[in-house]
């Protein structure tokens, strides 16, 4: 490859956006801003997936996470009355011990999953595919053959989630007054109107 390494430039650009956005998710005070930064980090990571020729995953990340999950999440965050002062309570108290744990975890992870284990000299980079390569087709092929068992279990998990959500949120309250449409449509004159035969009122003087 000659000239400017465009894919490297793109990678570092999106990787730095991702790291900055991910840290901002934690550091900004406003939960709405944090959710928006999470959206940005999803965008950046989907761009990195695109560089790996995983278009399907990249598009799904945008459509499902950014398009549906995060929008819903934002609604929930806006609905909740979150007391920021309470959230920040104890931050300083746990800053020292939390910081020590975080830094030591970071050191451990760099030493374990650093470039000397996963560098290009250790693991050969995946081969570039031709222009007519379709990631979606390849994924679909293994998803419905080799991994059909796992795919079906994932579907069952979603079914259980639906059952659980309905069970926990559906309240059949007896006091709820809902109109019954079919009853309303099929109502007849006799059901509503009662004609009462009465004798004509004779004026025999008013009682006081």
């Amino acid at each position: 490859m000659m000239g400017l390494p465009y894919d490297l430039i793109v990678f570092y650009l999106f990787a730095s956006i991702l790291v900055v956005a991910a840290s901002m998710v934690i550091f900004v005070r406003n939960p709405v801003h944090a959710a928006l930064f999470l959206v940005l980090s999803f965008f950046a990571s989907s761009a990195i997936w695109m560089l790996l020729e995983a278009e399907f995953l990249a598009i799904t990340l945008i459509l499902v996470y950014v398009g549906a999950v995060m929008v819903l999440f934002l609604f929930v965050v806006m609905m909740l009355d979150i007391d920021l002062a309470v959230l920040k309570e104890g931050f300083v108290k746990f800053l020292l011990i939390g910081g020590v744990i975080a830094v030591s975890m970071l050191g451990l992870m760099i030493s374990v999953v650093g470039p000397d284990k996963f560098g290009a000299d250790q693991i050969t980079p995946p081969a570039r595919h031709a222009a007519d390569y379709s990631n979606t087709e390849e994924l679909g092929r293994v998803l419905y053959t080799d991994y059909v068992y796992a795919f079906e279990i994932a579907a069952v998990i979603l079914l259980v989630a639906i059952i659980a959500a309905i069970m926990l949120s559906l309240r059949k309250s007896r006091s709820a007054k809902t109109p019954n449409i079919s009853k309303q449509v099929s109502v007849k004159k006799e059901d509503r109107l009662r004609i009462v035969k009465m004798d004509a009122v004779t004026d025999k003087g008013e009682r006081s």
């Binding site: 068992y149 796992a150 998990i157 659980a164 069970m167």
Partner: peptide, 29 residues
Amino acid sequence: MIMVSAANFLPMYLGLELLSLAMYALVAM
């Protein structure tokens, strides 16, 4: 059943999630 018959990380994890999700809902019932 899926967990005890798992020969791969994938069904092991998915079976565990299926069990756990059903359990969370039962506890909250």
